[in-house]
Design a protein around this nucleic acid. Structure first.
Lengths: 337, 337
DNA sequence: ATGAAAGCGCTAACAT
DNA sequence: ATGTTAGCGCTTTCAT
């Protein structure tokens, strides 16, 4: 038999009706011991595996969850997806992943693909929070959606990180050290992490009074390239910032490259605080002070929110869960010269 | 209408038969312009999205590809999956991902899940290549399988990396510098990358003559923890190795931690060469000499092999594609003291 | 306790 | 050019 066996083959081989096979496989009580045994024997001898596609069709659920992010290779995102996959997997769900490359068009395209594939839920870090069409489509989804580090549209569940507090504490630390020419580099204003970082930054530099004008904010992209380019532009001409906050998971590498290229010393020439706890941050010389949070927790919590919705344990309005950040002081900050 | 519209709803709304709707949607020529227009209007006004589950059931293909690896958060693996997802996505396939945590039991479990879900193909970096049951199941898969950096069972397509050459060149470089007490740290012998590194290493140290006995090989795990533990054990007692090759993508971080903990200097006290090109390797102080290869290429090539099989462009025997490595000399190696 | 049959949404073969 | 229908593999309702 060169073909994949179906429930019908099992039934024939066991000499029972297909309904009975189904009952055995799904653990229904009302099946005779002798019949059950025969069915199970047939199953193993044929190497039968139930067709999940057919089950999905019949049951109306796919036990599949979709996940869309900018790029899986970004340090923290792997941990995030890993963690989510782990809890989802324990409940029989499987993860479908796709990347958006930060293009809103691609978000829209993926939402459509996910709908067509009848996934049971989606979690997504959208490319932009202020695209009206994307927001509308997000709200029109027929399945639960959990936003990761995004808070619009606000009708959806979201798992957030307290970047505002993290950045505020980072800036306060720098100010405490005597800095006033501080630069914040982060992603596009259309994403919450960037906006929140700016808010936290502004809250902190308010204490600088009129000297706060010496501070700079550069928004644009979370990429290392952006970090490198902007740091280069910022640090080349005098007077240059005496401290930089690299607000994003990938950005540290870029900023570090710029600092090396200019042969600047940390923290003597420039103090540096990075977002995200990576091997690079902890093992760079000097070790880099960071705003730490757990992307694995984000993934885990997102998966749990999803499960609550899927299991009907929760039907109320959207929830937002804000996960904490922590400033980890290392050796990359000192007093300005 | 609170429910998801089906092709039947579209047909009713457009006043045609469902077969006609199907034909319009699938771009068959023999449909009148007027009718086509009516159908399309109905589709958009109802917000109809074809049910891919039903299509899969009917057509017998899911346009879904499964991917199993130890851990998505490992630096290179994200790039690998990213690249694969990108080429697969262009052809209408979507990726399902799952992690094995390096446990063979989990590989087996996933193979079964993938079979039940009727994925069209799978690519996998197995946890072990010498588990007879796993190998048997791999060969029994009814769909194309591509191995990533594994070469058993040999009836399957595989995309490999030339770790042997990479490690040989690394060791030769070290020997050229005057080292003879060289240690190689890498993963379990049940995986090809570890075995190949050992081969390359032994080829290189053969030139050492009887002094080759001073060299050490430690196999066990690709994890940073293993790297740290082994490096600690190796470097603590005298006489210690004068050079270490960290053979794995995650291992550099662990070895670096150990070296820091022992307050050793690179390259004065110990020379170091790492596998995989990470931000950490290029931005550490001193910058770390590495064996470079492209995980993104591995993912891309694997995806292309899969597509060839899926599109029937290839039916022959298994192919193995070996991707090159390159030794990138930086500042972490010097003459032994 | 078990069998028979309907039906999930779709495509393609067969009619007309 | 378009309508009708079988059937993909399964679960579940309805009989018996």
């Amino acid at each position: 038999m060169g073909t994949v066996p179906t429930i019908r083959d099992v039934a024939r081989s066991a000499g029972v009706a297909i309904g009975t096979v189904s009952r055995v496989l799904n653990g229904h009580k009302s099946v005779g011991d002798e019949v059950r045994r025969r069915v199970l024997t047939a199953v193993t001898s044929l190497g039968y595996e139930p067709d999940v596609v057919a089950q999905s069709m019949r049951l109306g659920v796919t036990r599949t969850i979709a996940c869309a992010t900018r790029d899986i290779a970004i340090p923290g995102l792997g941990s995030n997806i890993n963690a989510a996959e782990e809890v989802l997997g324990r409940h029989g769900y499987i993860l479908m992943v796709a990347t958006t490359e930060g293009r809103t068009k691609r978000d829209l395209e993926l939402l459509r693909v996910f709908a067509q594939r009848r996934v049971d839920a989606v979690f997504i870090a959208t490319s932009s929070e202020d695209d009206p069409e994307l927001n509308a489509r997000l709200e029109q989804m027929k399945v639960p959606v959990v936003l990761m580090d995004r808070d619009a549209p606000d009708s959806l569940d979201a798992v957030l990180t307290d970047h505002r507090r993290g950045t505020r504490e980072a800036a306060e630390d720098l100010i405490g050290l005597g800095h006033s020419r501080i630069a914040l580099l982060t992603g596009p204003a259309s994403t919450r992490p960037a906006r929140e970082r700016v808010r936290g930054f502004e809250e902190a530099i308010a204490s600088l009074g009129r000297r706060r004008r010496e501070c700079t904010v550069r928004l644009g992209s979370f990429s290392a390239e952006f970090g490198c380019r902007e740091a280069l532009a910022l640090l080349s001409p005098e007077p240059r910032p005496t401290a930089i906050i690299a607000g994003g998971m990938e950005m540290l590498a870029g900023v570090l490259r710029a600092i090396r290229a200019l042969a600047l010393r940390i923290p003597d020439d420039v103090s540096l605080i990075a977002g995200a706890d990576t091997d690079l941050a902890s093992l760079a010389t000097p070790a880099i002070t960071i705003v730490r949070w757990s992307e694995a927790d984000v993934g885990r919590v997102a998966a749990e929110l999803l499960l609550e919705r899927l299991q009907g344990r929760r039907i109320g309005p959207a929830r937002r869960i804000v996960l904490p950040t922590e400033l980890v002081i290392r050796e990359s900050c000192g007093a300005p010269r």
